[in-house]
């Protein structure tokens, strides 16, 4: 655990250092990458520990964002109650949802949770008087904390995202080494054997699903504050798919590698945004290459590389 936490601290320190010197325009882009990284970390609780592939990240993220914005509009001074309250709601909602879905296999669970994400988006669109519908909502009140004041501007959101990544990463590492974490890993390896050993499969997986949901909701709250505007399009299935894709590329169950994968690949993808209509094709190619590279690395598919590189290195 210590080694992983040290790696996480080094990663966050490097990101903080880069962020400290970035101008605001680029910091906004980095915040978007960190927002996705926080979602990936949240999903890692479900998939990396519990072995459950969820695509409901968008729904929980949206729940956090809409919940926070609507409640802050009604009670601007209530940050200390609203933020933990909305996160707790997301926790209980996720834990409650996970119980009936637990029996589904990887692919079917992914599809069922993807539907939850679509249901959320359609409900937001249907209840336009409260949520603003497809027009979205302006964020008129920023969260405020005692001593720190209002969390406004890119630097404050950057700090909030770094704090949440640090907190989430620490909880992830600590949980994996705990009794609960070992029970989750047992469920992931062989759920039938875990049940016969007396592990309450539904209960432990509900906890991991709940924690994932709560962190996604927190990510949504920071996103809303960071962009100053929320709309259903920000929380559609694209976000859920991307989150799962990056976690699979980085390796579920690992702490730092998925976060690194998000920041590097997202930066690469953003770099290709100027390609116009070819952007989507390039996105797909980058992600497919990353998936294939990971697979070949795991199965020794790159074994031919040293043979290819060695003669060239000798010549040099």
């Amino acid at each position: 655990m210590r080694r992983e936490v040290r790696s996480l601290a080094a990663f966050l320190a490097a990101v903080a250092l880069v962020g400290a010197f970035l101008p605001n325009v680029h910091l906004l882009a980095l915040n978007q990458h960190l927002f996705l990284a926080l979602n990936v970390l949240a999903l890692n609780f479900c998939l990396g520990l519990g072995g459950q592939a969820s695509m409901a990240s968008g729904a929980f993220c949206g729940l956090g964002a809409y919940g926070s914005v609507i409640l802050h509009t009604m009670w601007p001074q209530g940050t200390l109650v609203i933020v933990p309250g909305v996160a707790a709601c997301a926790f209980f909602a996720a834990a409650w949802i996970s119980k009936p879905l637990e029996k589904l296999g990887e692919g079917f669970l992914a599809m069922a949770t993807l539907c939850l994400c679509l249901i959320f988006v359609n409900l937001v669109l249907a209840f336009a008087p409260v949520t603003g519908g497809s027009n979205g909502m302006m964020v008129s009140v920023s969260p405020a904390l005692p001593l720190l004041g209002e969390l406004k501007g890119d630097r404050a959101n950057f700090a909030a995202l770094l704090f949440l990544l640090g907190l989430g990463g620490y909880i992830f590492a600590a949980m994996r080494d705990s009794r609960l974490g070992r029970a989750l890993l047992a469920c992931k390896d062989d759920s039938l054997a875990a049940s016969s050993c007396g592990i309450d499969r539904l209960g432990v997986r509900a906890v991991s699903f709940g924690i994932g949901g709560a962190f996604s909701a927190l990510a949504g709250m920071v996103l809303a504050n960071s962009t100053g505007f929320i709309s259903p399009g920000q929380f559609d299935l694209g976000l859920s798919l991307k989150t799962l894709l990056f976690l699979v590329i980085g390796g579920p169950g690992r702490l730092v590698r998925p976060l690194l994968a998000v920041v590097l690949l997202e930066a690469l993808i953003s770099w290709f945004h100027s390609l116009g209509e070819a952007t989507m094709l390039v996105h797909g190619l980058i992600l497919a290459t990353a998936l294939l590279a990971g697979y070949w690395r795991e199965t020794g598919g790159f074994a031919w590389l040293p043979r290819l590189v060695a003669p060239a290195a000798k010549r040099v």
């Binding site: 692919g107 798919l241 989507m280 797909g284 992600l287």
Partner: peptide, 18 residues
């Protein structure tokens, strides 16, 4: 299986992009 599934997601993006 999950990696195979995600590769079909990437393929979907590539085909849509094409």
């Amino acid at each position: 299986p999950l990696r195979q599934l995600m590769l079909t997601v990437a393929a979907s993006l590539i085909w849509q992009g094409a």
